[in-house]
Amino acid sequence: MDKIIISPSKYVQGENVLGSIASYVKALGANPLAIADEFVTGLVGETVKESFAKEDMPLAMDVFNGECSRVEIDRLTDICATQKNDVIIGIGGGKTLDTAKSVAFYTKIPVVVVPTIASTDAPTSALAVIYTPEGEFAEYLLFPKNPDMVVMDTKIIAGAPVRLLVAGMGDALSTYFEARANMTSGKSTMAGGALTRSAQALAKLCYETLLEDGLKAKVAVENGVSTTAVENIIEANTYLSGIGFESSGLAAAHAIHNGLTKLEECHHLYHGEKVAFGTLVQLVLENAPMEEINTVLNFCRSVGLPTNLFDMGVKEINKDKLFAVAEGATAEGETIHNMPFPVTAQSVFAAILTAHQLGQ
């Protein structure tokens, strides 16, 4: 199997970089469409419009409806075709960005991804997570290439609610452990080949950065300031985790997340909050040393990530519902089958209950 590492064509990170976004976008197209939800449009819409006005470029904007579903992708694809847009800009959270990537794929135009939060590693990936209009996981959509550009305005990201940055840490937390599982199993990664030493190194650096700077970054953002730790965590949550997961592979943690979307009590949680618990379940599933499990538990507690089902909003342990979660996590084609041993719904069910107990 060939070794493959993939990444965005350009990654830009800096304070107030959104004010000069047009200077970066003009290299890709002359008739852009920007999508953002109502809140993000209110937050950064004027800054983006002013940037394009300075460059004497047109800009069409449309309001994203909040769910990365086939219905929304089709709606925006039609708009792009009608307006003859030649580049799409997604501004906001993971679902907005995944929608922009999907529209770019179907219309065959470049995409610029502009996260306003660092809550997932979605921005850099050649992948979108498609949900039903009701918010249940439906499918992964794989693209032939990564985004043409990722633009991270650290001032805006640091100004977002701290819970979002912490959720990004939860998503990034799984990167090293899922990479390690794929390295052991030898399974193909999301990049379509064997993992490289470079991707392994990025995945490990991601985990080390979280342990070193996670709590410091959380405290800084709680106080409305950006520090070196915040900059490092934004890079870890986005670039290190993004390249790390995609070129090193997903395994149990993200499959557990997908299973948890079947629990109505967990619908209020962010992606990374569910992935953090999925990471604990993966460590139990592979019978990791207790010292390692405790390190992860302590990290989660220090930054406020859930470590048990009660933390996630579950009121009582319903074993039938949890077995349905385990069945969802082990469905055919799920990434849990990248683990270096056979995984069944029964073994996942047992790991969920054990992780829940250890995390209390």
Rank of each mutant, 00 (worst) to 15 (best):
D2S: 14
K10H: 09
V12R: 06
V12Y: 04
G14I: 07
A22V: 01
L33K: 01
E46P: 10
V48I: 15
L59S: 03
D62H: 07
F64H: 05
N65R: 13
V71L: 15
V71H: 14
T77N: 14
D78I: 13
I79S: 06
A81E: 11
T82D: 11
T82M: 08
V87S: 01
V87A: 04
I88G: 01
T96W: 04
D98E: 10
A100M: 08
A100E: 02
A100D: 02
S102H: 04
V103A: 06
A104R: 00
T107H: 02
P110K: 00
V112N: 00
V113K: 01
T120K: 13
T120P: 07
L127S: 15
L127T: 15
E136L: 05
F137C: 02
Y140C: 02
Y140V: 02
L142T: 02
F143P: 01
V166Y: 02
D171S: 06
E178D: 01
G186H: 11
T189S: 14
A191D: 09
A194S: 15
L195I: 13
L195Q: 13
L195H: 09
A199Y: 04
E208N: 14
L210C: 12
L215Q: 14
L215D: 06
A217K: 00
A220Q: 04
V221E: 03
V225E: 15
A236M: 05
L240K: 03
G244H: 05
S247F: 08
S247Q: 12
S247I: 11
A251G: 10
A255G: 13
N258W: 03
K262Q: 05
H268K: 04
A276Y: 04
L280Q: 07
T295M: 06
C300G: 03
V303C: 11
L305H: 08
F310T: 15
F310I: 15
D311Q: 14
M312N: 10
G313C: 13
K315P: 10
K315N: 15
K319H: 14
A324K: 13
V325I: 12
P340Q: 08
A345F: 04
Q346P: 03
Q346L: 07
T354M: 07
A355M: 04
H356T: 05
G359R: 01
